[in-house]
Design a protein around this nucleic acid. Structure first.
Length: 432
RNA sequence: UGGGGUGUAGCUCAAUAGGCAGAGCGCCUGGCUGUUAACCAGGAGGUUGGAGGUUCGAGCCCUCCCGCCCCAGCCA
C-alpha cells in the first residue's frame, strides 16, 4: 500500500496519516537508536524521526547514511510537534534514495564569496539565497500586476541591436551575420516607439553594460523595468515612481514576511516607506552635500557618497530632480525654466542603496533633439528611426528605469546585489 | 583604471621577534532514544597562490607575476 504523495506546506491536512515527501536532505543526526532527518522540498522543511526498532534494517541503515543534499522520498505518519522546524514531523516508516549526493561542497557554515559564487548553482539551495530570490520573484510579479492594473501594455524589446543606446563604449559587441551588433543596454528607445500605439507601455528584461565596475551596486547583466507614458510630464513621472515603489514595498512586507525574517531585515525601515517622498532639486542637493563636507561642485554628477549623504537626511527614498544637462543623456528634455538643466530625476534609496531609479521627460522637439545628438557627437545616422518619432506626431512623454537587483537588494537588506540575481554576471565572472 | 586589503588542509581561519605548519568545521571509524550548525573518543587530510632573491634557516623579509575582496569612477 503506497502512501499518497504530498508537499511539506500541506502537511497540516494529513495529520495522523501516512504520506510520502520527496525532497533534499538538509541534515541527518544519528543518536544510536533514534535519528533525525531534515528534508527540504521547496515548499518548506520537515523533520523525519527514525526509530531503529520500528524500521527495517535496510531503511535504518540507509537513513543514517544519508548525506547533505541527497534527494530522497520519505514515507511516514504526520505528527504535530513544536520541536520540529516546520511544526510537523514525520514518524518515518520508509526511506528511499532517489539521487545520492557525495561530498556536497557547501557546508552549513561561513564561506567566502568567491567560493560561494564558484558554486552558485548549489548555493541557490541555501536558506538566505532562497529567501532573497523568492522576494525578487515576488517583486517582479508585483511590477506586472501594478502596471497591468493601470492599463500598461508590455512591450518586449530587442536584445540584439545595431549601434544605438545612451552612449558607446559601454556596449557589449558581437557579430550578426557579418555586421557589428550590440547587446541592448536599454529598451527605452523602443518603448518610446511603442508609446503612441498604446499610450502606456513598459519593457522588462535583461540589459547589458560593459562597464568595468567593481562595486556592490553593479552587474554587467541586470534586469530593468522601463515604463514609458504618453502625455506624462516629469512630475507625473515621479508620482508614478512613488506609487510603484510604495506598492512594491507594501506587497513585499505583506507577502514575504517569512523570507524577510530569514534575512534578518529591519522591517521598521520598510514600514516607514510611505508617499510622499521628499523632492530636492539638483541645485539644493549640491548645497546639502557641500554643507555635509562634499567638494562636489554645481555641474558635476552626484557621486555615491553624495547620494548617501542625501539619503541620510530622510527616512524614505528621495527624488533628486533636474540635473545639469552635461551630466545626463541626450534624450532628456531641456528645462524651460532653467536651460542649464534637464527635466529628469533619480530616486535614491535609503540605507546606502543608492540610485534605484533614473527617469526623465523626453525631448520631443525634433530640432532640439537633433542639436543634442550633434553636441554629444553621437552618430546621427544610427538615430534615424528614433527621430521619426518626433517627425510623425511628436508628443510629450516620460519614463524611467528601475533596476531589479538594486531594488531587491534594498528590500532584502543584502549588502551586495550579486545575491539577488540567480546567476550574476560580473566583470570577472561568466560561469556558472 | 586608481587607492587600500588579502591569499596557509575540502571550507573558515591561527601560527610570539625569521626557528618542528596548527585549530574548528566537513570527511572516515566507534559510542549514544529527542537532536535543532547535537555531543564524546579516535583517524586520514599540506609543493603555505606562482617564479626568483636575502639568510645557517622563510608561511613571515625583498622583487616580479597571478587571483580575489573593499572603496572610487561609470550607472540602474
Amino acid at each position: 500500500m503506497a502512501a499518497p504523495q504530498t508537499i511539506v506546506r500541506e502537511l497540516g491536512a494529513s495529520v495522523g496519516r501516512s504520506v510520502t515527501i520527496r525532497g533534499w536532505v538538509e541534515h541527518v543526526r544519528v543518536h544510536g537508536r533514534v535519528a533525525f532527518l531534515v528534508v527540504r522540498d521547496g515548499t518548506g522543511l520537515v523533520q523525519g524521526v527514525l526509530l531503529r526498532k520500528q524500521l527495517s534494517a535496510e531503511a535504518w541503515e540507509l537513513g543514517c547514511a544519508l548525506t547533505h543534499e541527497s534527494c530522497v522520498a520519505v514515507t511516514g505518519s504526520v505528527q504535530e510537534d513544536a520541536r520540529s522546524p516546520g511544526g510537523y514531523e514525520l514518524l518515518v516508516e520508509d526511506v528511499r534514495l532517489l539521487g545520492a549526493s557525495v561530498d556536497f561542497p557547501i557546508q552549513p557554515k561561513e564561506h567566502g564569496v568567491e567560493f560561494l559564487l564558484d558554486y552558485r548553482h548549489l548555493w541557490l539551495r541555501s536558506s538566505a539565497q532562497r529567501a532573497g530570490l523568492r522576494i525578487r520573484s515576488e517583486v517582479e510579479k508585483g511590477i506586472h500586476d501594478f502596471l497591468h492594473e493601470r492599463d500598461f501594455v508590455r512591450i518586449d524589446t530587442p536584445i540584439l541591436t545595431g549601434a544605438i543606446g545612451e552612449s558607446a563604449g559601454t556596449l557589449f559587441e558581437t557579430e550578426y551575420f557579418g555586421e557589428r551588433a550590440f547587446l541592448a543596454q536599454t529598451g527605452q528607445l523602443y518603448v518610446e516607439a511603442a508609446c503612441p500605439a498604446f499610450r502606456k507601455v513598459y519593457c522588462f528584461g535583461p540589459t547589458f553594460r560593459a562597464e568595468k565596475s567593481k562595486t556592490r551596486r553593479h552587474l554587467t547583466e541586470f534586469w530593468m523595468l522601463e515604463p514609458e507614458v504618453a502625455f506624462a510630464d516629469s512630475d507625473d513621472n515621479m508620482r508614478l515612481q512613488e506609487e510603484l515603489v510604495v506598492y512594491l514595498v507594501g506587497r513585499t512586507l505583506e507577502r514575504c514576511s517569512g523570507d524577510l525574517e530569514v534575512l534578518g531585515r529591519d522591517l521598521s525601515a520598510l514600514e516607514r516607506i510611505q508617499a510622499p517622498f521628499p523632492r530636492v532639486s539638483y541645485t539644493e542637493a549640491v548645497e546639502i552635500v557641500r554643507e555635509a563636507g562634499s567638494d562636489t561642485r554645481w555641474g558635476a554628477d552626484l557621486g555615491g557618497a553624495d547620494e548617501t549623504r542625501i539619503a541620510e537626511h530622510f527616512d524614505r527614498p528621495v527624488f533628486v530632480y533636474n540635473y545639469p544637462k552635461g551630466a545626463k543623456a541626450f534624450y532628456m528634455k531641456e528645462n524651460p525654466d532653467d536651460p542649464r538643466t534637464v527635466l529628469c530625476n533619480d530616486l535614491i534609496a535609503p540605507e546606502g542603496y543608492g540610485e534605484i531609479i533614473g527617469g526623465s521627460q523626453r525631448e520631443d522637439d525634433l530640432d532640439r533633439l537633433t542639436a543634442r545628438i550633434d553636441e554629444e557627437k553621437l552618430p546621427a545616422e544610427a538615430y534615424g528611426w528614433y527621430l521619426d518619432l518626433r517627425r510623425y506626431g511628436t508628443f510629450p512623454h516620460s519614463g524611467f528605469g528601475l533596476g531589479i537587483e538594486r531594488f531587491t537588494a534594498w528590500m532584502t537588506g543584502r549588502p551586495h546585489i550579486r545575491e539577488l540575481i540567480p546567476f550574476p554576471r560580473l566583470m570577472n565572472r561568466l560561469t556558472p
